[in-house]
Structure formats: structure tokens, C-alpha cells
Simulated assay, not measured.
Amino acid sequence: MNIFSGHIRSSDTSVPMIDPFGRMVSYLRVSVTDRCDFRCTYCMSEHMTFLPKKELLTLEELERLCSAFIDKGVRKIRLTGGEPLVRHNIMYLVRALGRKVRHGELDELTLTTNGSQLARYAAELADNGVRRINVSIDTLDPTKFRKITRIGDLSKVLAGVDAAQKAGIHIKINAVALKDFNEDEIPEIMRWAHGRGMDLTVIETMPMGEIEEDRTDRYLPLSELRASLETQFTLRDNNYRTGGPSRYVTVKETGGRLGFITPLTHNFCESCNRVRLTCTGTLYMCLGQNDAAEFRDLMRSTDDDTVIARAIDEAITRKPKGHDFIIDRDHNRPAVARHMSMTGG
């Protein structure tokens, strides 16, 4: 044994994570906070009750747990929220994980953001090894943007995109496809993104958490959206992968890539290599299932990282084959009660 960062380590912490279906888990998504400075109507209730700060893992605890997963074979970490950049002193964790990238222990550190804080943090993110980020933009109409986010300012998000690109960060735009809201705007968003050298991924709304509206009113199958786009564009399937669930096509007319995330119409679970860690230390082996493993109390009870490693191994044995997402009039309650902001977007 040797001592590293104050914790006891042993060689058995490095056994890779293989789930019951033979999939190697190499991608960890970490929700660093459930808080967000937007209140997107399809994601959150307007009057959210956020977790007390005392229930959250400290940034030092998040660093320790991320390190344990890296020891177990995780090669990519995505920081999410809520909005990750509203977490106080979040750059402490970015710097710590950025050192893992610099030393070759981690292939990639990235994050998903609403862009509201990007103008402030873009340069520092780039300096600490962040090379790619996802920015969520569902509309380029400032009035509609304020409506869908309830409080968001599109101009600040676009300024953040400018700052990130200036810092050399590659951006992928994420847009949730919403019936009778932005379905007619997707071609414009795609032309804008591709014109700036950014990929675009469109996402089906996911049935997670109680919100004010009925998701069936907003649900747009991406098979319908794709059929509509193919009346204007030539979409050619390609084999590009980023480690996530997107399936990409190349758009002949723009030369850019368009991704589809289809948890409802086409299950994306067969090649899932991901697990999700919440800001309270709960590990979800599947976004669409409730089975979980709790790490906060365990971490606070021991400095022996072999105990953490064994708990990770046990959790991975419970990773399911797939999720149970469904949206229809007969299933008008969310498939999963927790909000997306709690699990990590």
C-alpha cells in the first residue's frame, strides 16, 4: 500500500468496471449541483425546492470520488448540474480533474452548461484542459428563449459561446425538440451552429420529475423531426461517436454534423458505458432507473479507498440493460420522479 492525497490506496482499486452485460464503464457524469439559474419549463418546476447545502458533497469529496472512478477505468468525466458553473468555487474541481488530463490519467474532461456563465469561465476552463463542451440552446429567438427558460437571457448565452470559441473550446449545441415550440426552428438553429463550426444534437424530452405542463403536449418523436428535415436537407448516416448516446448524420448542404438522442423512440442503451453521480453522492447506474448506490456516508466513514472501490464494483453489478422511459396519455406521470437537474443533464 501507499499513501496518495491522504487516502489509503491498494492495487485492487484498479480492476476495471464491467457490467453484467459485458459493457465496460468508462464514462462518469457528475452533477456538481442541483441548482440552476434557469427554470426551463420541460426540466424544472417554476418554484423548485433545492437541496440544503449540507447535503451536498464538498468539492474535495467530489474530487476523491472522481479519482476513485478514474482508478477503476473511467476515461471521460462530464460535469453537469443543474448548471455546473453556478456551484461556488467550481474551478477547484475543474483544476483538480484538469491535472488528471494533463498527467494522462483521464482522456477528457468536459461539461454541459446553459452558457449563462461561460463568458466568465471560458478562458479558465480551456486553461485547465477542457477542450469540448455542450451548450443547451433550444431557440435563437430572445423572446421564446426567455419563455422556455423563464428567466434566461439569450444574449448572455451567445456571448458565452463567443468566449468559449475564442478560448479554443469546441462547442456542441444541444436543443430539446419541443412540439409547437421550436420544431420549425431546428433548421435555422442547425444552419447557425454549422455555420460557426459547431455540431448540433437534438434531444427528445425525457419524462423525469413533476413539472407544471403535460409532457405529452411537448413530446416530438425525432423520427418525425428527421423526416421533416429530410424534405430540406440530405442526411447521411455516419459512424462518428463522442462516447454519449447521440447517433450522428452529416448534413450535405451545411457540411456539419447533426446528432439525435432518442431515449423514447429508439432505445440507446445497448452500448451504454455511463454511470451518473449526483451532488449528494448517489450513483445511478441508469438515467431511467431508480436503483442507486449511496457513497456520501461511506466516504465520510473511511479513508480507505479500497472500501470505495468495492462499493463501486458492487454498484456496477446492478447496472441494468436499459431504461423504462415512456411518454403517452396512459403514462402521464414521469417515468422517474427525480428531476433531470438532480441526476445531471
Rank of each mutant, 00 (worst) to 15 (best):
P245L: 07
N238G: 07
S246P: 13
N273D: 15
S246C: 12
N267C: 03
F268N: 02
E270H: 10
V249W: 13
R274L: 06
L264Y: 06
R257W: 03
F260R: 09
C272K: 10
R274S: 02
G259D: 06
I261L: 07
S246M: 06
P263F: 15
C272E: 14
G259R: 11
S271G: 08
R257A: 05
F260G: 06
T250P: 02
R247Y: 09
G243M: 07
C272W: 13
G259I: 05
N273T: 15
G255Y: 14
Y240R: 15
S271W: 03
L258A: 06
N238I: 14
G259M: 10
D237H: 12
Y248M: 00
R257I: 00
R274C: 04
L258I: 10
K252R: 09
V249T: 12
P263W: 15
R247A: 10
T265D: 08
G243S: 06
S271C: 01
C269M: 01
L264G: 04
V249N: 08
D237A: 14
T254A: 02
C269A: 00
G244A: 12
F260E: 03
N267K: 13
C269W: 03
S271I: 00
P263N: 14
G255T: 08
R274F: 07
L264V: 14
D237T: 04
T265F: 03
G255M: 10
R274T: 05
T242C: 02
T265K: 02
P245N: 08
F260N: 04
S246L: 06
L258D: 07
P263I: 12
Y248C: 01
I261P: 08
G256I: 10
E253F: 07
V249E: 09
V251Q: 11
Y248P: 03
Y240M: 09
F260Q: 08
E253K: 03
S271D: 15
E253W: 03
V251H: 11
K252Y: 01
P263D: 13
T250M: 12
G256L: 09
P245M: 08
